[in-house]
Structures are given as C-alpha cells and as structure tokens.
Amino acid sequence: MFDPKQAFDLTGKVALVTGGSRGLGRAMVDGLARAGADVVIASRKLDSCEQAAAEVERDTGRTALPLAAHVGRWDELEPLLDAVYARFGRLDVLVNNAGMSPLYDTVDSVSEELFDKVLAVNLKGPFRLAALAGARMAAAGGGSIINISSAAAVRPRASVVPYAAAKAGLNATTVGLAHAFGPSVRVNAIMAGTFLTDVSAAWDSEAFARRAGTFALGRGGRPDEIVGTALYLASSASSFTTGTVVTVDGGQP
C-alpha cells in the first residue's frame, strides 16, 4: 500500500543542488532539507553558499555543506563529488540546476565565446556531473538525478537561442542517461517555465504582465512552486518514473 509520508521522506539521504544558493535552486534546497535530506549547496560563490547553508541548518536542523564549483568547468566536477563523498560517504539525489542565459542584441552578434559558455553551463556541465554521479550512484545501488530544463527548449524565442538549444540538448541527455543508468538510478528533468526569482526584478513588469496573461494560470510562478515536483522526482514516490521531462510552467502557450 502506498504511504505518502514514507514515500516522500528523504531522511538519511544526501542531495546535491548546483546553483543552490539562490532562485529555484535555493527553494529546492530548502524543500529537500525539510523532507529530511542533508544537502550540499554548490555554486560559483562560496560566500553565498555558506550563507544559504547557515540558513538551512538554522531553519531545518539538517546538515548543509557549502561548496564552490563552476559547473561549466569539467575539471571542477569530480573534485566536487569527491568533497560530497568525503563528507557524507554517499549521494542519493543530484539536482542539475545551475544555468545561465546572457543577453545579446541579435543572433548574428552572438560570439563563439558566449555560445560556448552557455552550452558549457547548461548542457556540457550537467551532462558530465550526471555521468560521474550516476556511475557512483549505480555502483552504490541507486539514486535520482534531476535536470532543470526550460520551456525554452520547446518554445525558443529569438532572445535565447543558445540557451534554448542547450536545454533541448539537456532534455535529450535526460532520456539517454535514464537508459544508461537504469534500472537502479532514475534520471528525469523538470522543464521550468517563467518563475519570479531575484532575476525577474530587472524585467519590464508591464511587458511581463501582458505575456503572463496568456498563461493558463495567468501569472509567473513562485520559486517554491517547483519544489513539489522536485520532491516527487527525488523520492521513492516516483519509483517508476524515469527518462521523463515534466513541464512546470503554469500553462504557457
């Protein structure tokens, strides 16, 4: 018989969230910790990770380990995992959340450097970290990998072409890695829509309001509204779910 409390309980588990010090990553870190997991908060800025870790430990009572790592640099990813295993001896959940989408004027102005940087952070890094973590999880008997994709992967706009291409690649990577690491390790993705994180403070509020008016829910999402899906995919509640891209976008057309 399905027991909801037991299925979503992450007590004794360890979860690593990249880009975990702010935005959607920070919301998922808090949700995972409140579900019982010890968490690893990784981003480029150690001080931000340390601040977030202190808040998580204070608010949830779980252990939170802050680590600095640039996911776009492959040589930093194995040391990141080594640090996780040195502290906890295990990793049960990986959330590939770190991402970036720099602005540009026109597509013909996109430099090779910008294109490569966007793909490194949004696709190459998540692939490599998932590949390394998935191999270790499989050797240990199981785990869950969650890639944070974007609605831009299937609804690309002129202003985010490299980012959209990277996220479309991440969707394909998700399915492929599910087959690579099954049956013991599950790999899924959340295709996130427009969420009102700290980044949204710089948006044109009137333009966004007009666009959000076309969403089925008529608004952007709160960061905590991605947490339920993340907990489902991280926990045994999704034990028969893998190779799936779950859309969480408020009904964007």
Rank of each mutant, 00 (worst) to 15 (best):
G36L: 03
V14G: 01
W74P: 08
T194L: 01
V107M: 14
A234F: 04
E78W: 00
A131W: 12
S43R: 11
F215K: 10
I148Y: 05
R136L: 04
L170G: 04
T214N: 05
A140K: 04
A212F: 12
G176H: 09
N97Y: 14
T63F: 06
D108E: 14
V187H: 02
T229P: 00
L196N: 08
F127K: 00
D92T: 00
L231S: 03
L114G: 10
I145Q: 06
R155N: 10
R62H: 11
A86G: 13
A27D: 12
V227A: 03
V84T: 00
R58M: 04
T63R: 06
D47F: 10
P156D: 04
T173L: 15
A7L: 09
L132N: 11
P156H: 11
Q6A: 09
A153H: 11
F127S: 03
A237Y: 00
A139M: 02
A7T: 08
I145Y: 01
P102S: 14
V110E: 06
A151H: 15
P126C: 14
A164V: 10
A33R: 01
R128V: 05
V40S: 10
A207L: 15
G182A: 14
I41M: 06
A120T: 08
S159A: 12
R186K: 05
W74G: 15
G61W: 00
A64T: 04
A230V: 06
T247M: 03
A15E: 05
N171H: 11
M137Q: 07
M1L: 13
R22D: 09
D249F: 03
S144K: 04
G20D: 03
A153S: 14
A140Y: 10
F8I: 01
R34S: 15
A202H: 15
R58D: 09
A165H: 05
V154C: 00
S111T: 15
G99P: 13
P156G: 01
M1P: 02
A209C: 11
D59F: 06
P162W: 10
G31L: 02
A139L: 06
A130Y: 12
K5I: 02
L196D: 02
T106P: 07
N97T: 00
V56I: 12
T60L: 00
R136C: 09
E113R: 08
D108V: 14
G141P: 08
A237F: 06
S21E: 04
A130F: 04
S200Q: 12
V107Q: 10
A230K: 02
V175Q: 13
A151S: 12
V14H: 00
S238Y: 11
S150D: 10
T174V: 13
V40Y: 13
Y85T: 03
D204R: 08
E57A: 08
G221A: 00
V154S: 05
S150F: 01
R34K: 15
S150Q: 03
A158Q: 09
G182V: 06
S238V: 09
A7R: 02
S109D: 13
E55H: 01
D105G: 09
N171R: 14
S184E: 14
D108Y: 09
G213T: 10
L65F: 02
T106K: 15
L94H: 10
F2L: 07
E55F: 07
P4D: 10
T197G: 03
P162D: 02
S144W: 01
V84D: 02
A42F: 06
A189I: 02
F127M: 07
A135C: 02
G218N: 14
G218D: 13
